[in-house]
Amino acid sequence: MKINANGYTAKKLNIMIGRSNDESIEIEGVIGQRYIGTALSGKILEIEGAPGNALGAFLDGAKIELFGNAQEATGDTMNAGEIVIHGNAGDATGYAMRGGEIFIEGDVGYRCGIHMKAYRGNSPAIVIGGKAGSFLGEYQAGGTIVVLGDGRAGGAVAGYFCGTGMHGGEIWLRSQDAPAALPEQVKTERVKGVPSNVEMLIKKWCAKFGKEAINYTGDEFLKLSPDDANPYKRLYTPN
């Protein structure tokens, strides 16, 4: 099925998607409609244009491929599925996602991967082709974030305060420079080449955007992880 989004509200679009018997749905002419594909499962959406905030929020297994830029809160509380963005993504991408994968060709805004968690067999992942804004992986409690810094000559590939409040998971930055103002509880490790789970993610990203994995996987990475799963435990005194 093919839908031209022009003139439809987000609600109408979601109803049309929900009612369609087709597994695969193309939506073109998207212009600012928010909440597209909210809590969707079992479908494949191909979107052209500029969707509004909260694309694929609470996503529950569906696949969304966007040819264009995403706004804020893409994949908020995503449970399972895949979001591929041929462009950049805004702030709070992948907020509290606990499953599924998000692949971004370009850059992401602030607070990408905040509150991301792993849960039983699920380990969410975000791969960012370009660079990330400040507060990447804030309060991260699980899962994997990879920033490839594609096309950058040097310098940090994530902004300030990366991993603030992080208490689980990993952040892999393809860069030799640590982001500015790294919080104390974040450990950094220089690693040449990546382990197989990260390699898999990079390969998937490359396949989606027509790149060669070999150009990335053997490079020097900075691995960020929390030095304690209970970062606040010493702070309190029972009264």
């Binding site: 908020d76 709070a92 607070r111 039983r120 409690a141 699980g142």
Partner: peptide
Amino acid sequence: MIPEGSDAISPAPHHDIYSIEDLRQ
């Protein structure tokens, strides 16, 4: 839906909400 053995932290700020517009979202 979190791993065992790690603290469950939910800070007061919803870091995606800075205005009534954001709350509305």
